[in-house]
């Protein structure tokens, strides 16, 4: 790999995907027809909720290939950079690759330009990446993420939903995506209160993921036997922090205890 020096007129600037293209990295293969749904992995339910310090992201751990569970501990919630994160639903392969490129794109921009993109700039960047995936989405391999972050300029947590065309929609309270999103979203909607604290919002997210797994076969519930719990992360002024598994185990047990005593 040699040193990528460009003449001023064909310099790709701080854009990493453009740099890859100019440097001769292979474009994705074009193909017609659809890929059978059992031939690739699918990831499902994710939610994002705003609270008083910022935003919380949560995602279940199951990947399915058709009717089979193909992975029990897949990760669908990722840091995008220090002050933002992405949660993905849809075809796992393209989604994870999209996140990898997105993370690199943000870091690359920051290093080349010497300053970070604005939160809105990051959301628009992701929107363009989803749009470029549209041909694959039409063949069944859609990627539908949620983007959340702490806007340092505004001093507030913000979250964005997308559709497969790259449409970008800012939500003020909460967002959900994936096959279990209807159930998870309803739980969040009913339990949401403005200005919740980190503790309350984590319990609400646990409950939302629990209900989604209860109703949707493609969403994985908590698995205390293997010690697998949904991935949850908060994004605040201090950055992206993943909640540890012991905390999640404790919250899950408390939820189950509440359910038992209600019966």
């Amino acid at each position: 790999m040699n040193l990528p020096l460009f003449r001023p007129h064909d310099d790709p600037g701080p854009n990493f995907t453009e740099l890859l293209r100019r440097s001769g990295f292979a474009e994705p293969v074009e193909f017609d027809g659809t890929v059978p749904v059992e031939d690739y992995r699918h990831g499902t339910t994710c939610v994002a909720i705003r609270y008083n310090d910022g935003v919380l992201l949560a995602g279940d751990r199951r990947a399915t290939s058709g009717h089979l569970i193909s992975h029990r501990a897949i990760e669908k919630v990722f840091p995008a950079d220090r002050h933002s994160g992405v949660a993905i639903a849809g075809a796992a392969g393209p989604a994870v690759e999209m996140v990898r490129l997105f993370q690199l794109q943000l870091e690359h921009y920051e290093k080349v330009e010497g300053t970070s993109l604005s939160l809105e700039g990051k959301a628009n960047q992701l929107s363009q990446m989803i749009r470029s995936n549209l041909p694959a989405a039409m063949q069944g391999m859609a990627v539908v993420p949620i983007f959340a972050g702490f806007d340092l300029a505004r001093g507030d947590g913000r979250l964005f939903e997308f559709d497969i065309t790259g449409g970008r929609y800012e939500e003020t309270e909460h967002a959900s995506t994936g096959s279990g999103s209807l159930h998870a979203g309803t739980v969040v909607k009913l339990g949401y209160r403005p200005g919740m604290d980190a503790d309350t919002v984590a319990d609400l997210a646990i409950e939302a993921m629990f209900e989604a797994a209860d109703e949707d076969s493609a969403t994985g519930g908590p698995d205390p036997v293997r010690g697998i719990y949904p991935i949850m992360a908060t994004i605040t002024e201090n950055g992206y922090t993943r909640l540890d598994d012991e905390d999640l185990a404790r919250r899950t047990e408390a939820l189950i205890a509440r359910r038992r005593s209600a019966n």
């Binding site: 790999m1 040193l3 990528p4 740099l19 990898r100 690359h108 290093k111």
Partner: peptide, 30 residues
């Protein structure tokens, strides 16, 4: 050019494969 070299190398292989010696050699060549 160095940022680009490093980011592309990390993307096509792995983050731990990016090293200063190879970058220094590339600079020296150029």
């Amino acid at each position: 050019a160095g940022v680009r070299h490093a980011d592309m190398k990390g993307y096509s292989f792995s983050r731990e494969d990016v090293d200063a010696r190879s970058l220094a050699n590339q600079y020296a060549q150029s």
